[in-house]
Amino acid sequence: MKAAIFEYARADSIAQACSLLAEHGADAKLLAGGQSLVPMMAMRLARPAWLINVNEIAELKGSRRDGAVWVTGAGLRQVDVERDGELARAVPLIRQGLYWVGHVQTKNRGTLGGSLVHADPSAELPLVARTLGASFLLRRSGGERTVPADEFFQAPMMTATEPDECLVEVHWPVWRGERVGSAFDELSIRHGDFAIVAACAQVEIDTAGRCVRAALGIGGAAAVPVAAEAIARSLHGTQLEDATIDAAVESIGQCLEPGSDVHATAEYRIHLARVLAARVLRQARTNATGLARDTRA
């Protein structure tokens, strides 16, 4: 299995990548970590005429707190994101999701932005981004725009990114509360495989143990990752007791459109979504109760 022929350019700045995209447009693909694109090229499922290597662009590799959000560069390696202790304290779901992603060798190459733009409906990082309501800074020659996660993920392997746009930054909301907890869980055949269904949640509780804010997301059970916003809202003001959580997630199938394949039927995926949603909400509650977070970072 060898890739079809392609022309190649190495971009050393975002501006240069954008100008190459402006020139070659839909015939070109940005090559970041290549952990999804290169296998697709090897199998000739992807045959870009041009590959633009963005691995050497230093300005795509920043990671910093900026007010109410944490800003990560799209070109950060997954392994560097996972090891970033300050980011893990500010947005713990990212590290919790990355735990399930691939293997050491793929995380050493794979990038944060590459996984998000690839937009596999069962992938972990898109699920975390959708659940938390991250936003995406897209740049093209002569302009840039910010797209929220609910508009960014449009279909399996399809995002709002236009052929002449480069994902530059991802902005992750930081929940500032003292008692914030989150959790990620999934079922896959083996660790590192695509998730059959994945779920993640983040909750904030007050000193009386009442839930003041909640977010819940499901991956692998629709064309795009789904934020179960109505269920999350229904938990506000509750004590997040097991029975409350179980009752809240009972109707989760209503916001999902799972398919059936050799691994699982649609019905089983809905069952899994319900089980995993309850599990991550309980774990998030426990984490919120147990941790008095250092929010100064």
């Binding site: 190649y8 090559l31 290549g34 290169v38 392994v79 050491v104 060798q105 793929t106 050493n108 190459r109």
Partner: peptide, 16 residues
């Protein structure tokens, strides 16, 4: 091992 870290060499082009 690429610059100290293990990677899959089938998922990189030599030019990278």
């Amino acid at each position: 091992i690429l610059d100290g870290d293990p990677v899959r060499s089938c998922l990189m082009f030599a030019v990278q």
